[in-house]
């Protein structure tokens, strides 16, 4: 019954849930961002030129910010959707 109602809905866009591919890309991208942030910070500490040092620190902060944006998708997307829909189970 519930399942039939779901199938009858025609969506113009995918629902706000993460696909397996999304999850794979997110975890990849999180690793990229963390590595980039660490590298930028490490380089900043080694730089003698103040402009280069400042730019490296800015990059570090940007990558940490991006990390948080991406991480947020792992913490909210799925749970929120299933709470809103009171989805009983995954469909196959």
């Amino acid at each position: 019954m519930y399942r039939n109602q779901q199938q009858q809905q025609r969506r113009s866009q995918p629902p706000p849930i993460l696909s397996t591919k999304d999850d794979a890309y997110l975890t990849d991208a999180l690793s990229w961002e963390l590595l980039a942030a660490k590298k930028a910070h490490s380089f900043a500490s080694q730089c003698s030129d103040n402009q280069v040092k400042y730019q490296a620190e800015q990059l570090c902060q940007m990558h940490q910010r991006h990390y948080n944006i991406l991480l947020n998708h792992l913490s909210t997307d799925q749970q929120q959707y299933y709470e809103d829909q009171s989805y009983p189970h995954f469909h196959n």
């Binding site: 999304d22 990849d28 991406l70």
Partner: peptide, 20 residues
């Protein structure tokens, strides 16, 4: 990544990150 995203919110955020 942005080309492969599923839903709109994720697409928006990843496109924003790409742009920055």
């Amino acid at each position: 990544f942005v080309r492969e995203t599923s839903h709109q919110e994720l697409y928006n955020d990843v496109l924003h990150i790409l742009n920055e």
